[in-house]
Design a protein around this nucleic acid. Structure first.
Lengths: 369, 369
DNA sequence: CCAGAGAGCGGAAACGTTTGCCGGTTTCAC
DNA sequence: GTGAAACCGGCAAACGTTTCCGCTCTCTGG
């Protein structure tokens, strides 16, 4: 009978420990441990007895003790830039699902673009001894990263991490999806396409803009400088940028946005000034957040799959954490993007009026290069 | 010089331990521990020496070991219903800020309204031995809760927990804010006000609807049954509910919604059918999510402060965790709600046209009972 | 001058695991 | 029948803390 506990000042009655199980099953704690961890050198009928004992005493392994002795916490850090931006909760959700599936727990934190906050966040993660961390944001202090790299700490970046060994990077193929978007517009007859970028101090925002310019150039389409406006990746930014575009002498017939929130802002900005989408102006977003399906009109957008992103991130981290895994040498993980055509894009205003009537049935598919 | 570690198969080089500090400072590990934990029986100059040593060797206490021996993880569980619903990220953010401020870390999980998922989530939290959990959602299995109650496990519910001892409840005062909303509308001249509720299996949704009916009754205003429609607390639900209201012979001049996403859906539904807000119909939301300020028109809404909610939740949990704290007997924590007037409400269509012109300057403040 | 109290510090036990090592039992080929 | 090999399972040493207990001083009061 498990004797009385020695330490009287603990908070709550501790639950059954490995010793209780061992006693009940009539084996040593080592055998219980091996059984729980699925180590094959335990005889089947003994394992059976252990499992029964575990069920009977209601044993739950103590994570702290496990982590302490094994040096692994089975905890993954996930750093996002702001959790209140609709794209991130979806990512967090998927990341968590996948991590849990693989037996990990997730430690989430958002930086709010604040370097100090970021630093303290990473520090807190290390203090909780996460096994690795996925940095899905930008602007983290170089110095802090260097420290982690030196300790061979598993890290994953999105898009473009610092160019260091032992760092894995999820390479999002912006070009692919954005080319599809541009070609979709071109196929519809648009020549005059504007782009609202994200804040240009973000490398991902720059990548998206450059992908847009490249795709336009490929089709021999020029983009006047005033048709590239800098937004903020928020609805407000989209609204403001739209106001600027509306003031132009030659308004574009289509607007491509660096993310969906911007595009939704554009939708609002246009509706406010009684421009119809897509009849007067076509709008394309980027990300394919959940909301994109439910705005009016449903947003045509370039999908960057949260699921793929999350799955790649978890997988990449695991290759850094668990030595035996395949792909452990892979440092770049490609993430595809694709156009999803909904109802915010159509023929340019005034062109092909006959076809425009039947637009909803005659939706052209995205053109492939 | 700290001899070589015994266990060769750990992942990464362990960082400095309490022993390294002790050695460097020429004291025992007990003294280091006492210094770190601010126990006053350490002589000042010794403490000084210890702190120096800590800085020199870059010591960071090992959370796992701490938790193992002290029985406390300084980890709080936070269960929300769906992280992708814009209200929750804001709550999560605030909760995290406050928890971290008080030296806790947060273990977030979302149930997606799935009882199975909820159960496994709570189980995972217990396995990570959280010190307490805030359940900001509904539909959790009674049985599971009972188990936790039996273990005197600190828990906080929003709104209405099971009526059990040792459970703390954040009592949101829906009546207050909703009365302000209704009186604001009545003061503007509205008599004919509809309500779009949340899913009625949620007790909070029922509470909000009842608060609305009560406030209307207080003013002697009747609400025909078809002016109460059930939504889903999502944008889609708001759009659908609006479509239903528009089909009615007698359309309401104002619509109060059970949450902001619903109200935003209503905005879309009305714009789609060329009804102007607020000139044709006034709309009021609930929650005051960040987005509410940025839709067009900016949404008049009842604010339920995330910050207050989060602060109360953390504080209530702490009273259950740390024995010495004041307020430890308090089981109900009141959360006030208040109307925030923006631009989605105005005089009813057709009435007071002269005043309506100057509406933006003549905005009436919320009436108090 | 001495007894007793207290302050300040160190030794060591405990927390609940994982895992290296070793000893015992079986199996099988010769 | 014997030896080696394979297989299983137990012992005990870690992991890095907190905290109890007891020892040594330094005061203080008588």
């Amino acid at each position: 009978m498990g004797g009385p506990r020695k330490n009287p000042n603990r908070l709550r009655a501790p639950s059954a420990s490995i010793r209780d199980v061992a006693q009940r099953a009539g084996v040593s704690i080592a055998t219980v441990s091996r059984t729980v961890n699925g180590i094959s050198t335990v005889a089947p009928e003994l394992a059976e007895r252990v499992w029964n004992a575990i069920r009977e005493v209601g044993y739950v392994p103590n994570t702290q003790a496990r982590a302490l002795v094994s040096g692994r916490s089975r905890l993954l850090g996930l750093v996002v830039s702001e959790i209140t931006n609709p794209f991130f909760p979806e990512l967090v959700q998927e990341f968590e699902n996948i991590a849990v599936e693989q037996g990990y727990e997730v430690f989430i934190g958002s930086t709010n673009y604040d370097p100090l906050r970021t630093e303290s966040l990473v520090r807190r993660m290390l203090q909780r001894s996460v096994d690795g961390v996925a940095i899905m944001t930008f602007g983290i202090e170089q110095e802090l990263i260097q420290k982690l790299v030196d300790r061979a700490f598993p890290m994953v970046f999105v898009d473009s991490g610092p160019d260091m060994p032992n760092i894995r990077v999820l390479k999002v193929d912006y070009g692919e999806g954005i080319r599809e978007a541009v070609q979709h517009l071109a196929a519809l007859g648009h020549r005059n396409v504007a782009f609202i970028s994200g804040p240009l101090h973000m490398r991902s925002a720059v990548s998206r803009r450059d992908a847009f310019l490249k795709s336009m150039a490929e089709l021999g389409l020029t983009v006047p400088r005033e048709h590239i406006v800098e937004g903020t990746h928020t609805m407000e930014g989209g609204i403001r940028a739209t106001e600027n575009l509306l003031r132009l002498s030659e308004m574009p017939t289509a607007i491509v946005c660096s993310n969906d929130m911007t595009a939704i802002g554009v939708l609002h900005g246009l509706q406010r000034t009684t421009h119809e989408v897509p009849d007067d102006v076509s709008v394309i977003g980027f990300d394919d957040i959940h909301l994109a399906q439910f705005v009016l009109p449903p947003l045509t957008t370039v999908q960057m799959s949260c699921k793929l992103l999350a799955a790649a991130a978890v997988q990449a981290l695991r290759t850094g954490i668990e030595p035996g895994l395949p792909q452990s040498q892979q440092t770049e993980w490609p993430i595809p993007t694709h156009l999803v055509v909904r109802q915010s894009t159509s023929f340019p205003r005034g062109s092909l009026p006959a076809l425009a009537k039947t637009r909803s049935t005659a939706r052209p598919a995205a053109a492939k290069a």
